[in-house]
Every structure is written in structure tokens, then in C-alpha cells.
Design a protein around this nucleic acid. Structure first.
Lengths: 205, 205
DNA sequence: TAATTTATTTACCAGTCGGTACATAAATGA
DNA sequence: TCATTTATGTACCGACTGGTAAATAAATTA
């Protein structure tokens, strides 16, 4: 609905910070410290803004967390979406296992996965956040199961295969790998785990 | 060093609570809420004592957590120790996977594993607790690797087997299963995961 | 009974928690 | 220039954080 006007954007004083970059900073803190472990002071320090700006732009701590996790899910190099587009169920699992291994080993961002670690055990104040993350994890597994069901219909998984069980197994290994990296496992070790996990997966043909 | 005297125990006013039971209550709270998510008020409420008693008996929040986790590790029905005593490496893995599946499905205690979830992502105040839990997880895997190395020497694992890689894979699946149960997986589903994970493990003979 | 030792209760500490009221600053359109 | 709108900085809110000082209570030994 662009109307060729010189008005930059909106009425009122323009915000002095980049909303997206501030959200990235917030994500990094939540990722590192979890929801309960992150204070508003941690957030405003990292984001370079003060509390009223944070509340005006993002709602409150909980809504900021959800927005940060949404950003996390839609990261440009998200392994998840690319994996689902592989040609066979085996290739999907393989892409996801090695892709996550490589991503987890990447030291340019905090350890692990914010969806797994953000609010695993938590205070009552974080209960709704915990539930939101559970829904995301379950939803991801459901999408994998759906992809495996397609593969089964397409004939590249045996008729005896259980798409949901396969998805749960794959999810289990991926979630376990996020803990392994916190334990100190490096890229090679994570890829070894991926390789072993694949041995339990129905081979193509 | 029992000397047959009628003195019950010690000098001074006796404590009015059962130290072990209070510790069990503390464990349950930490298990459910994690270290950051648990407040001293949560603890004193659950333990039925007040703060000065807690501090006199257990030190501080951090020391109480460590003591609670020690209690957790030495639970009577701890799968871990029993698993290591099985006759073959495969039997060790099998016992551990199915044992953990059953234990995780047990609704008489909080979900998951306090060693995995207690301080995965956490505040700076919990950094030392996080490190202690990492050490425990790594230590457990090291004991499994040791057991697998014995098995390899005994000839019940192929000479090509890598005991440490096998232990890491097993640990990964077990840790992933603790998250699965929080996601809502039931006993049957956890046992399915255990079954699949075993398919990647070197078969006996 | 008196002195000693330890546990409990109450009340409190400074610091931090998530969140907001209010005054001011910077942009807009009229 | 002026009213309007939105963002910012400061200063504050009550509630809660982990932790403790001090008084009292209950056991011991002498």
C-alpha cells in the first residue's frame, strides 16, 4: 500500500534503536540463560535500551521471549525447514542429524537450543512459556512425522514403518544432542552420534 | 563407635524435622522447577521448616541443591548402577534404555531428570551448579564408556567398536528421552524409542 | 538447679525482581 | 508556529530475592 510520499514511516518520534537487532540481542540472552535465569536488566543491557522502550516495543518479558523464539525458529540457516525438503525420509533424517550437529557445534551463538533449554524446568511464572516451548517441540516432531508419512505413501519407507515413532526417535536424538554440546561434545563427536543414530533408521530401498 | 549410653544423639536441642525427608522434599522442588526457578520460600514451604533451620542444616541454596542431587543419584531404584552390572555391553544399553524409559514414565515423581534439567540454561548465580551437573553427566558417560571398554576387552563388543562413542550415543538418547517425557511421551512411546535406539547398538555375538 | 549447647522463631537486611508513571524530546501534519 | 503523536530517560512502585541477627526454647551435662 505504498503511496509515493516523502513521509518516512509514521507519525511521532521515531524509535532510536533497530527493533530486529534488539530482538536478536534478547534472543542471545534468553538462549544463554533461559527464561527464569534472564532478568530485565540482562535484557536491557544487551539490547541497549531501557525498560520503557522494551515494554513499548515488545510487550513484557514473556512476550519478548516468545518473539525472540519466533525469530530463532525463522533463522536464515534453520536446518529444520531445509531438512524437510529432502527427497527421502532417510535423507530428511540424515540432513537433520548432520545439520543440527554442525549448527550446535557453531560457536558463533550460545550453546544448545533455546526451544529445548529456554524453560525446561522452571518457576510458576514461566509456566506458560514452558508450555509454548513444549508445543513448538511437539509441533516440530509432528511435521517430521507428517513428512515421514508422505515418504511412506511414496514408498520410500517400508510399509511396516511407524512415521510418528520414527519422528519421536529422531526428535529424541536431536534433543539429546543439544545437551551433549553443553556437556562439551565437539562437532566430530556430534557427527558420530548422528551417524550412529542413522543406523537405527530404515535404510533407503 | 556406638558406646552403650542412653544419650540419644548429641548435645543441645534436637532438630524438630527429619533431615532426610526434608532433603527429599527439596529435591522434588528443584526437580520440578530447576535451580533458578526455585526460591527459598518454595523450599521452606515444601520442607516444612524455616530459613534459619535450612541454612543451619544444609548450608545455603546451592549446597542444598548439590545435596539434593546427591540424594537423587543414590535413589534406591537408580537404574544407572544396576545397568552397569549387566553381563554384556548390549545388555547394559538395553537395561539402561528400558529402565530409564520406565523410570521417566513413573508419575510418582516430577518429570525428567534433575541432573539434565536442573540448570541447563541458567543465570550467572547458578553457573557453578550448572558446572556441577555437567560434571555429573560427563562422569556418568565416562563410567558407561569404561564399562563398554571392559566389554570390548572381554570380547562381547567388536574390536571395531568405540566405547566412548557408544557411551555418548547412549547418553544422548537417554538425555533426549528426559525431554520427550516433558513433551508428553508415555511409557510405551519411550520404550519404542529405547527399542529403536538399540537397533544402532552393536548386536551381541 | 545451673551452665552449656544447639534449634527454632521472628523480624529484619540490602539488593533485585518485573513493571510503570511522568516529564521531556523528537518527529509529524496543520 | 503549534497541536498531536510517539519514544526516551528518570525515578519510582510493591513484592520478592537469598541470607542473617537476635531472642527464645529444648535438649544436654555438671
Amino acid at each position: 500500500m505504498k503511496i509515493g510520499q516523502k513521509s518516512v514511516c509514521c507519525i511521532g518520534r521515531p524509535r532510536a534503536f533497530d527493533s530486529e537487532k534488539a530482538l536478536e540481542k534478547a534472543l542471545e540472552v534468553f538462549w544463554r540463560k533461559g527464561y527464569d535465569g534472564t532478568s530485565l536488566a540482562d535484557l536491557t543491557d544487551a539490547m541497549g535500551i531501557n525498560k520503557p522502550s522494551l515494554y513499548a516495543a515488545f510487550g513484557n518479558k514473556e512476550q519478548l521471549f516468545i518473539k525472540a523464539v519466533d525469530l530463532y525458529e525463522n533463522r536464515p540457516n534453520s536446518v529444520f525447514h531445509d531438512a524437510l525438503m529432502q527427497k527421502t525420509a532417510y535423507a530428511v533424517a540424515e540432513y537433520m542429524l548432520y545439520g543440527v550437529a554442525d549448527d550446535l557445534a557453531d560457536k558463533s551463538h550460545p550453546n544448545g537450543c533455546v526451544i529445548v533449554q529456554g524453560a525446561l524446568s522452571c518457576s510458576e511464572a514461566a509456566a506458560s512459556v514452558k508450555e509454548a516451548l513444549i508445543n513448538k517441540r511437539v509441533g516440530h516432531e509432528a511435521k517430521i512425522a507428517e513428512r515421514f508419512a508422505e515418504a511412506k505413501a511414496a514408498g520410500d519407507l517400508p510399509t511396516s514403518a511407524d512415521p510418528e515413532a520414527l519422528a519421536r526417535y529422531l526428535g529424541t536424538v536431536l534433543q539429546g544432542m543439544t545437551i551433549q554440546v553443553t556437556n562439551g561434545s565437539d562437532q566430530q563427536q556430534l557427527r558420530e552420534i548422528a551417524k550412529m543414530a542413522l543406523m537405527a533408521f530404515p535404510q533407503p530401498q
